[in-house]
Computed example of a mutant assay.
Amino acid sequence: MNATPPLSEQVVVITGAARGVGAALARKLTLRGAKVALVGLEPAELKVVAALCGPAATAWEVDVTDNDALGEAARQIQEHYGRIDTVIANAGIALGGPLLESDHRAFTRVIEVNLLGSVATARAFLPALTESGGYLLQIASLAAMTPAPLMSAYCASKSGVEAFAHSLRAEVAYQGVKVGVGYLSWTDTDMVRGADQDAVLKQMRARLPWPASKTYPLEPAVDRLVAGVARRSAHVYAQAWLRGMQPMRWLLPTLIAKAGARDVARLAPEIRATAATRLRPVGAGGAADTAARTEQEPTA
């Protein structure tokens, strides 16, 4: 089996690359010499990030839940660069609030983007990764380890992508493809800042035990992800303490159920009073996804 090529010789595809973790990954990987192909819903923002990444960077406006469009983008990206070495499945949105007060379409959309979008990304790009003996990094979350009240859609989707990536790893290993899972705690992105604009969600997060209650700076987190990509690691932890969560994760659902139940009961009146404010995904990325879907809906 061929040795892992240095990042300076790699073509890296990043979904959800218009902002946040995806955009920062693109910039950091470019500094290491990689050529980056940026996939996302926001063409103007993608072009700005691509410009920051130099003349070899390209931007591709694609919805990761559109299997046909994503497959065509994968074909065109491979044709443009001649190869694809690494794919980072990073696209994601989040929704907060109780299940019974959530909008069914918005809840379902979180699952579609985060989980089924990751499946579609793997399906589209694995043929190219098989040719190159490449690497797929699936971005998961602390939410895959710690089921949190008022975040059921996001937690379910991130638990799903973690399990999906672990299953896929065994399927494609004999073809020379490596699969990794990236874990991030609360990191300073548009999504987290959007969640913090909701007073209830902010209070719930503030009551998490340290260090899970803290918001972490973006740049060091992305540096750790890039280092994991360079090593083609099976597990990549954007905050070092997340590694220590793995051995105790079996205990977390019980602990969170007890503490979370008390917090939800205490905040129930405020949760009900503000239910109408959390019917859409949080943050600028969530707003962009909602806008894109609205444009695609047929008019009467």
Rank of each mutant, 00 (worst) to 15 (best):
S233M: 11
V264D: 13
A230S: 11
A265I: 08
G260Q: 00
R243C: 09
V236Y: 03
A221N: 03
A268C: 08
Y216P: 04
V200E: 01
K202E: 07
E219F: 08
T254Q: 13
A206F: 12
K214A: 05
T274S: 15
S213T: 11
D223S: 03
V226R: 03
L251S: 07
T215F: 09
T254P: 04
A230F: 07
G228D: 02
I256Y: 04
M204R: 01
E270M: 07
A212D: 03
P220M: 08
R262D: 08
P247M: 01
L255N: 12
L242N: 02
I256W: 00
L252M: 07
A259D: 08
R266W: 13
T274I: 14
Q246L: 15
A227N: 06
R249P: 01
A265E: 10
P220H: 08
K258A: 13
R224T: 06
V222M: 00
M204G: 02
T254W: 13
Q203F: 13
K258E: 11
D263R: 13
A206T: 08
L251M: 10
V264A: 15
V226I: 09
P209K: 03
P211W: 03
V222A: 00
L252A: 02
Q239P: 07
A234E: 15
G228P: 04
L218T: 05
A221G: 06
A259C: 07
D263V: 14
A221S: 06
R262C: 06
A238N: 05
V264G: 14
Y237N: 01
A212R: 05
P217C: 06
V229W: 02
P217K: 09
T274V: 14
V226A: 04
Y237G: 00
A268T: 15
V264M: 13
D263A: 14
D198N: 15
M245K: 02
P269Y: 05
V226F: 06
D198W: 06
A261D: 15
R205G: 04
R266S: 12
W250C: 05
A265D: 11
D223M: 01
R249N: 03
A276N: 12
V222Q: 00
M204L: 15
V226M: 08
Q246I: 14
L225I: 13
P211M: 09
A199Y: 10
P220Q: 09
M248K: 14
M204V: 13
H235D: 15
A257G: 09
M245W: 01
G260K: 01
L218A: 04
A259F: 04
R205F: 09
W210R: 15
Q246N: 15
Q203H: 12
L252N: 02
M245Y: 05
I256Q: 03
A221E: 01
D223P: 04
A234D: 14
G244V: 07
R231L: 08
I256E: 00
G260C: 00
A261Q: 15
L242S: 00
W241C: 06
R224Y: 08
R262A: 10
K214E: 02
Q203M: 12
R266V: 10
R243F: 14
Q239I: 03
A261C: 14
R249I: 00
P253R: 04
A212C: 10
P220D: 07
P269W: 00
A275V: 02
A268V: 07
P253C: 04
A268S: 15
P209E: 08
R262F: 10
L252V: 08
A221T: 02
A273I: 07
Y216D: 01
A238M: 06
L225D: 01
R207V: 02
W250D: 05
A240N: 14
V229F: 03
